[in-house]
Amino acid sequence: MSGVDRLLFPAPKEATISVERKLVDQKCSACGSADVRRYPVANFIGPRMVTKCQDCFHHLAVDVPALEDHWPPWRSATLDWEPSRAG
């Protein structure tokens, strides 16, 4: 890890790291539970937002993060810009 990386992403002070799992207004299609939440994950195909039942762990949706999701935190500010002819 370089010095710049440590300035931008310092080592966590907490013993564990967690993300907020936001409750969504949906019912699980597999078990009928109302405890369905949406949260960010690091997937093998890149960063994604998952909507998942917290009782039976059934996936209801896996989406590409929108700008308002702020995921991943190191996402490029120019990610959605159209490329120029210069490259």
Score class of each variant (00 low, 15 high):
residue 29 S to L: 12
residue 84 S to D: 15
residue 37 R to E: 04
residue 63 D to A: 11
residue 37 R to Q: 05
residue 49 M to W: 00
residue 61 A to E: 06
residue 47 P to A: 12
residue 11 A to D: 02
residue 45 I to V: 09
residue 18 S to R: 06
residue 9 F to D: 00
residue 39 Y to R: 13
residue 49 M to Q: 03
residue 80 D to Q: 12
residue 48 R to Y: 05
residue 15 A to T: 15
residue 38 R to H: 07
residue 11 A to S: 03
residue 68 E to D: 12
residue 36 V to D: 09
residue 8 L to C: 03
residue 37 R to M: 04
residue 20 E to Q: 01
residue 16 T to D: 14
residue 87 G to Q: 02
residue 55 D to T: 06
residue 58 H to I: 10
residue 14 E to L: 03
residue 58 H to K: 12
residue 13 K to L: 05
residue 2 S to N: 03
residue 64 V to Y: 07
residue 83 P to D: 15
residue 73 P to G: 04
residue 16 T to C: 13
residue 55 D to R: 08
residue 39 Y to P: 08
residue 65 P to N: 00
residue 60 L to Q: 07
residue 63 D to G: 01
residue 10 P to K: 10
residue 6 R to E: 00
residue 59 H to Y: 15
residue 76 S to W: 00
residue 68 E to R: 10
residue 30 A to H: 08
residue 48 R to W: 04
residue 30 A to C: 05
residue 74 W to N: 06
residue 48 R to S: 14
residue 27 K to G: 02
residue 26 Q to K: 12
residue 9 F to K: 00
residue 71 W to T: 07
residue 36 V to R: 01
residue 65 P to D: 02
residue 70 H to C: 10
residue 19 V to Y: 14
residue 20 E to N: 05
residue 27 K to Q: 13
residue 10 P to V: 03
residue 56 C to K: 08
residue 25 D to E: 06
residue 84 S to W: 14
residue 64 V to A: 15
residue 87 G to Y: 04
residue 67 L to A: 09
residue 83 P to F: 14
residue 69 D to R: 01
residue 77 A to N: 06
residue 39 Y to F: 13
residue 64 V to L: 14
residue 59 H to C: 15
residue 41 V to G: 03
residue 85 R to W: 12
residue 35 D to N: 05
residue 49 M to E: 05
residue 17 I to H: 02
residue 4 V to T: 03
residue 40 P to E: 08
residue 5 D to G: 01
residue 24 V to T: 05
residue 40 P to M: 10
residue 69 D to Q: 02
residue 27 K to D: 05
residue 24 V to W: 00
residue 25 D to S: 09
residue 64 V to R: 15
residue 39 Y to A: 15
residue 86 A to H: 09
residue 79 L to V: 06
residue 59 H to N: 14
residue 87 G to S: 01
residue 6 R to C: 00
residue 78 T to I: 11
residue 75 R to W: 00
residue 45 I to L: 15
residue 48 R to V: 08
residue 80 D to L: 14
residue 50 V to A: 15
residue 74 W to Y: 12
residue 13 K to D: 08
residue 39 Y to G: 15
residue 55 D to A: 10
